[in-house]
Simulated assay, not measured.
Amino acid sequence: MLSPPISRTPLLSANPSLDYLLAQVAEAVQLTTTQYTKATEHYEAVARWLEADDSLLAKLSPRIYPQGSMALETTVKPRGEVEYDLDLVCQMSHSPGSAMDLYSAVYERLAAHQTYRTMLSKKKRCVRLEYQGEFHLDIIPAIQDPFRGTTSLLVPDRELRGWTPSNPKGFASWFKSKAALRLVEKTARYDAEPLPALRDYDEKPPLAISVQLMKRARDIIFDGDDNAPRSILLSTLAGHHYQGRTCTLTSTFEILYGIQEQIRSASPNTIEVSNPTNPDERFSDSLTRERYTTLKEFTRHLTSELTKLLDARGLDTYQSSLESIFGVKPVATAFEKYGQLLNSRRNTRTLTYSPTGLNIITPTTSPRVPKNTYFGN
């Protein structure tokens, strides 16, 4: 059963050890280097096929770029046997006709490939390539929105049999501006923009880490339930309520409290959440009554569980609390790396004591932990 709401805002003291552990949990749940490499190879191969000179799409000047968690650097490995997804936009200079004509053109080009035709399926707004046992690649046909311009798009919707608004590139830019971080530009072959490189915890902004932690906690709680909060909804709300903190735990608390306050302010109505760079793209339209209830319960529950960390004392208690939120494997990986770092800092005499425990970052006022020589007293 999910926890009741928390009415107090916890006062956080600097605890670099806990922040390090949270960041390592986030790193442990993102795509592995092997998964990322495979995704990149498939992404580039599909892009080359769609953009080739002999392609049916060549006259439409397709441009390929990633969207979603890969673009935001907030990937989270699915639990169990569930495949992860990689989204890419195939933006054309114009449509050969109606929205359905554009959708069909992309589908037919992929169906012309001997391998891809056996992997194809049609979805509401994308064409899906299923890489069995690995992931699925969702390819979203699009053209520029002639009224909004810039990066705003119109995307075919098979249920509406018409156009629907979107702006994934604008959203990614907005999210990264909130995180005060920009992608490193790389030279791309063809017109396919590269996937953002995997980065270590100390290179990733707290906003991205907080989103990864929220998504992982959601997956643990709801375990594939269709009513679980959508990733795009969590990412948007997180971007709105992120206050620029460098502490991951503080950032996550502020995001969760911001969401809860937004929900309270909107009551008895539901909150409205749109793409900040294209208000016509309304993410909250997918919030059924059941999904709205789970969003409220999720933010309260995660706030409650994280609050327990503030009262925890000792690494064993930390580990138990973190496992209940994020699962056993990623937490075990985080503690293994933490142990390695402690040994390294101890040996170089850069490990210190503080009221919150052992510090992996050395304040000048904290007493140093002596190097362990293993030779007795």
Rank of each mutant, 00 (worst) to 15 (best):
S3E: 15
P4T: 15
S7A: 15
S13Y: 01
A14T: 04
P16M: 09
L18G: 09
L22K: 09
Q24L: 12
A26L: 07
A28Y: 01
V29Y: 00
L31W: 11
L31I: 11
T32S: 11
T33F: 00
Q35Y: 05
A39T: 13
A45V: 12
A45P: 00
V46E: 01
A47H: 05
E51R: 12
A52W: 08
A58S: 12
K59Q: 14
P62E: 01
I64Q: 01
I64S: 06
Q67P: 04
S69E: 04
M70A: 14
A71D: 03
P78M: 01
G80S: 01
V82C: 02
M92G: 01
S93C: 04
S95H: 02
A99M: 04
S104Y: 07
A105M: 01
R109W: 02
A111F: 05
T115W: 04
T115E: 08
T118F: 05
S121H: 09
S121D: 12
K122I: 11
R125Y: 01
C126M: 13
V127I: 14
V127M: 04
L129P: 03
E134L: 15
F135W: 12
D138I: 08
I140T: 14
D145F: 07
D145P: 00
D145Q: 08
F147Y: 14
T150K: 10
S152G: 13
V155P: 10
D157Q: 10
R158A: 14
E159W: 03
T164D: 13
T164S: 14
N167S: 13
P168W: 01
K169I: 08
A172I: 04
W174T: 05
S177A: 12
S177C: 08
S177P: 07
S177F: 02
A179C: 06
A179W: 06
A179D: 02
A179M: 08
A180I: 11
A180C: 11
E185V: 10
K186Y: 10
T187I: 15
R189A: 14
A197M: 09
L198G: 02
R199S: 07
Y201N: 09
D202F: 00
P206N: 08
L213Y: 03
A217D: 00
A217C: 09
F222S: 01
D225E: 13
D226Q: 12
D226W: 07
P229R: 05
S231Q: 02
S231E: 07
S231P: 02
S235T: 08
T236Q: 01
T236P: 00
T236H: 02
A238R: 01
A238E: 06
G239S: 03
Q243N: 12
L249W: 02
I259G: 04
Q260E: 15
Q260C: 11
I263R: 10
S267R: 03
I271D: 04
N275P: 03
P276F: 08
S286T: 08
E290K: 11
Y292W: 06
T293H: 02
T294V: 07
F298P: 04
S304H: 13
L306D: 13
T307L: 15
T317Y: 03
Y318H: 15
S321A: 15
E323N: 04
S324W: 00
V328R: 04
P330H: 04
T333F: 06
F335T: 02
G339C: 07
S344M: 08
T348E: 07
T348C: 05
T348K: 00
Y353W: 15
P355G: 15
N359G: 14
I361A: 15
R368E: 15
R368W: 07
K371S: 08
N372Q: 13
Y374I: 13
